Computed example of a mutant assay.
Amino acid sequence: MPSNKRYRILSTRAVDPELVSSAAEQSVDIIPQAFIRTRPRVDDRLLQQVQQLLKEKVTVVFTSVNAVNAIQNLYFRILPADAVTEQANMPGWDVYCLEGATKEALSRTAIPHNITGTAANAAMLAQTIVRNEEKGPLVFFCGDRRRDELPDILRQRNIGLNEVIVYETTETPAVTGATYDGIFFLSPSAVQSFFSVNHLAQHTVCFSIGPTTAAALEQHTNNKIIISTGQRMADMVQTAIFYFNNIN
């Protein structure tokens, strides 16, 4: 990367300041601007439902960090952090989840669980569930704007799936008023929100967190789309740095 050339990337989601600083040292300036807002659901019916599920040996599915964080929030409302006896008596959940950030978020929770299977995206996770001959019903913790791939595949195979909406997504579009060398997209909802009020310059590269988000991008732009090497924001940042280091 030429020392006199700096690259500007807009991130449609917040970025850890340490990642921003690390990228800046390699001539990549990341400007965060959230294009969606997520809000965990908290109501009596949902609390009772999750409380009951914690008492059961169930198989659950997570395809987003937001769902994991929402369940963690409910868990601490149901069970105080010092309730050691109650935690010990929980059977624990068998969990299918996405690799990367979702799995890492689960590892940080206090919820008793065992990872049964992982995959890079929702469609592949559904195929893993099918291969493991799960009969269901499985519990799918998701948002109110979840994608159809996983539920459709499981229902085609007659695998029962109970969807529990634990967070809500709201688009927060904003006109950028600037030109960027690259843009980070981490969900189809962020893609929709961004393009509802913005257009891309021809040279702007779209960096996608995965194939599902890339497919959403293809519906809005013909610009170059590069899929991140992993599911974490750190992977996205490194993918962009590698790209800009090697385009000349």
Results as ranks from 00 to 15, higher is better:
Gln52Pro: 01
Val68Pro: 03
Glu86Lys: 12
Gly92Cys: 04
Ile115Cys: 02
Ile115Asn: 00
Asp43Gly: 10
Ile115Pro: 04
Ala24Asp: 11
Asn121Ile: 02
Leu47Cys: 12
Phe76Val: 11
Pro40Asn: 09
Phe62Ala: 10
Ala81Thr: 08
Arg37Phe: 07
Gly92Leu: 06
Tyr75Pro: 04
Glu99Ala: 10
Gln72Cys: 07
His113Trp: 00
Asn89Leu: 13
Val95His: 01
Leu54Trp: 11
Ile30His: 12
Lys57Cys: 09
Arg39Trp: 05
His113Tyr: 00
Val28Met: 10
Met90Asn: 08
Ile111Cys: 01
Ala34Ile: 04
Gln26Met: 11
Cys97Phe: 08
Val60Ala: 15
Ile31Trp: 11
Leu53Asn: 03
Asn114Arg: 13
Tyr75Gln: 04
Leu46Glu: 06
Gly117Lys: 02
Gln26Leu: 13
Glu99Thr: 14
Ile111Asn: 01
Gln51Ser: 15
Lys103Thr: 09
Val60Glu: 01
Pro91Tyr: 09
Leu106Arg: 02
Ile71Trp: 02
Gln33Ser: 10
Asp44Thr: 14
Trp93Cys: 08
Ser107Cys: 02
Ser27Pro: 00
Arg108Phe: 03
Ile115Trp: 00
Asp44Arg: 15
Asp44Trp: 04
Val68Ser: 00
Gly92Asp: 03
Pro112Ile: 00
Gln48Arg: 15
Val84Thr: 13
Val58Cys: 03
Asp44Asn: 13
Tyr75Lys: 02
Glu99Arg: 13
Asn89Glu: 11
Leu46Arg: 09
Gln72Thr: 12
Trp93Ser: 02
Ile36Phe: 06
Asn121Ser: 01
Gln49Cys: 06
Ala70Asp: 06
Asn121His: 14
Ala24Val: 05
Pro91Cys: 05
Asn121Val: 03
Asn89Met: 13
Ile71Cys: 13
Val61Met: 01
Gln51Met: 08
Gly117Ala: 05
Ala81Tyr: 08
Leu79Ser: 07
Val42Ile: 15
Lys103Ser: 11
Ala70Tyr: 05
Arg41Ile: 14
Arg77Ile: 13
Arg45Phe: 07
Gln48Met: 09
Val95Ser: 04
Pro80Thr: 11
Val84Lys: 15
Lys55Asn: 10
Thr63Val: 12
Arg108Tyr: 05
Val65Glu: 12
Ile115Phe: 02
Phe62Val: 05
Ala23Ser: 12
Ala119Tyr: 00
Leu53Asp: 10
Trp93Val: 02
Ser107Met: 09
Met90Arg: 15
Gln33Asp: 08
Glu25Arg: 15
Asn66Ser: 13
Ser27Asn: 15
Asn73Thr: 14
Gln51Tyr: 13
Arg39Lys: 13
Tyr96Ser: 06
Ile30Thr: 08
Pro91Glu: 08
Lys55Leu: 13
Phe76Pro: 01
Ala119Asn: 06
Ile111Tyr: 02
Glu25Ile: 11
Ala34Val: 11
Glu99Pro: 06
Asn73Phe: 13
Gly92Lys: 05
Ile36Trp: 05
Val95Met: 04
Leu53Lys: 06
Asn89Val: 07
Leu74Tyr: 11
Ala101Glu: 09
Ala88His: 09
Arg41Lys: 14
Tyr96Phe: 15
Ala67Cys: 07
Glu56Ala: 14
Arg39Glu: 15
Thr59His: 10
Ala70Gln: 07
Pro80Lys: 04
Val50Arg: 01
Pro91Phe: 05
His113Ser: 04
Gly117Val: 03
